[in-house]
Design a protein around this nucleic acid. Structure first.
Lengths: 202, 202, 202, 202
DNA sequence: TATGAATGAGCATTCATTCAT
DNA sequence: AATGAATGAATGCTCATTCAT
């Protein structure tokens, strides 16, 4: 990797880390520069402005996540509970890898972030996740109505979201968090699916 | 109430409202002053700085929430599921009333908020909520082990937290959000408790 | 005059002086502040931004000049040569009093100055001046065609403009400049009018 | 011409064009480089800094103008009015070709332009032009006193200067401006000379 | 000969905070 | 008890310039 690309990467890493710790608005270009071991003006060499830095940081991982979930859902040999667990794991891995972003997608309301960008991406990711979770549930309980699928899809989303949110700000290392979250989430999903079955079957 | 106290109150109200609408960082002292119908320097007459304003704003509602939950748990005529639902409702009401604060307790790491304050309050609220939820679960299934209570307490907390987080940043009005969240949450809790019973009873 | 108004005035004076010496773009807010003996942020207390500072500086004197010329033209007891000289004197006085502005009207092409404002004011002042000069010429030589009036009006404008431009950047004091310019201009105008008569009469 | 010289020339051309279109301050080194089809750092290979670029750009045309005027004045077959008109035309052509420079010679006080350079060149060009115009006038009316020559020289200079100043910032193309200015100026000069004769002869 | 990488000084502007009244 | 005046530190961003290759 040549020097320019390295610097570019260092900047992106620094920005990612800082955004995740402090939130977009609270991070200054000078801070990012310091962490990336370069001048603040160097950042502008590679990124148009602060906003673009965020954008570049956000979109690719999102696309990867989306594709990965699709692959998971389409794996024929898996039963629906396994698919749900695998999807949850995908989301957890993504959210840990991109702590900052996850936070941002779900909590940001900074007026400073361009409206279009925000609504575009966040809505797309949120609704896409929703749709995918709903699909798994409909696979799991084929007799559910549209409304019930919507409702239970939400529940499962909330469970995943809540679990992640609780751990995401801790100072713990990534793999340690993963090890703690995944079993909890697995069991939560089992319980939820079981509860859903128990509820809807009578 | 004398004039001074009235002004003080007006300031607090203004700050509370603005913080919940726009978030701590995006609110300026001049905005608060305008809404409170006083000069921005008057604020400093009653509050050390912006941070203290937030602190003063945060602690009392938290204490109120805490007491309310205690009362709910101790109401003898309620069964455990009803207690859980009522507690969730308390938390939802609190979080909607103090939108920006809720966010802060659970997600902010802004270095602008004094460290001590942050760790002190957030930890206390979080662990207290945990303890209370665990207590309800132990009432519900008396045969559970310590570990299981911890685990299921977390699940329920995650469900509540996740549900709230998903709606808290929307532009919707408070009562509208309340109406949407509570039934979802009620049913989620039913399902979770049912799932827990189904899981742990065999 | 209270303190606020004094400061406001001081800022305006400083800006005016600096703009005239260095040109709009080359003047920084901090420079203005320094000259006005206040902080740069104080400027923003009284003026929205750098642009507004210029606008506030520019428009009133222009309106005053315009009215003054109208009054001059309408003074019945004056013959046309006297009117022309008096008008030229008005323009000279204005341009000396507002050195910066005069320069700006005629030479600025900074993209940083809001387009609308620029074209609006400059065009209005320029074309108004033109019209007024033409009117005097038409009073002077009633037999001239439209085209000739236009042409000679331009000539006279150029003479005035050129004379001013040559002196306006010198370090000389205002009254000293005035004393030097006015006799030159008076004589120039006499010669031009005489030349015009000589030319058009045969 | 070897490669280095070619590059050097390309840079100068680019700078010249951009300076005249946008003005010295508004042009960036990167812009110049882009137009010159080289890297911005290459510019520093050949020119000390932005200022020197301007200097190198300014002096030669000035010298050329000066020589051309001398030649015009010394052409024996021309009468004095023709000499004056031709000189004016030289100045007009120069000022249009070097729009931004003309502006600079006559109006800039930007401290960004080195003091010495400024006073040195501008004064020399201004006083030289003056002298030359005076010489023509003295040829035209041999009976004039020193003072009168000075005075009328100034007038003619003002007329030329004013005419140019009025058009120089327009967006019009060069040749179009030339076509508009020259007839106006020719006639102005006729009138002025006629006026001078009329005035001084009685 | 030429360049891409990197930088620091500087800019307009914002905002929490202090001070004199 | 209250305020308007004033400020300095900070922010995102630009640009002439330098440096290593």
């Amino acid at each position: 990797m040549n020097k320019a690309k390295e610097t570019k990467k260092r900047i992106l890493n620094a920005a990612s880390e800082l955004f995740s710790i402090k939130g977009y608005d609270s991070v200054t270009m000078r801070e990012i520069a310091k962490k990336a071991n370069c001048s603040h003006s160097t950042i502008y060499l590679y990124y148009q402005d602060k906003n673009q830095l965020l954008e570049k940081l956000a979109v690719p991982p999102l696309l990867i996540l989306s594709k990965r979930i699709d692959r998971t859902i389409n794996r024929e040999q898996l039963d629906s509970l396994s698919k749900l667990k695998a999807t949850a794991r995908d989301i957890v891995n993504f959210s840990i890898k991109n702590r900052s972003l996850y936070l941002m997608y779900m909590t940001i309301n900074s007026e400073k972030v361009d409206e279009e960008y925000y609504s575009l991406e966040v809505n797309s990711i949120r609704s896409a996740l929703f749709k995918k979770l709903q699909k798994i549930i409909s696979l799991h309980c084929s007799y559910l109505s549209e409304d019930e699928i919507l409702k239970y899809g939400r529940m499962i989303f909330f469970q995943i979201h809540g679990t992640i949110m609780t751990y995401i700000n801790s100072e713990e290392g990534s793999s340690s968090i993963r090890l703690r979250i995944i079993p909890i989430l697995d069991e939560s999903l089992e319980i939820l699916l079981q509860g859903i079955r128990g509820k809807s079957s009578y």
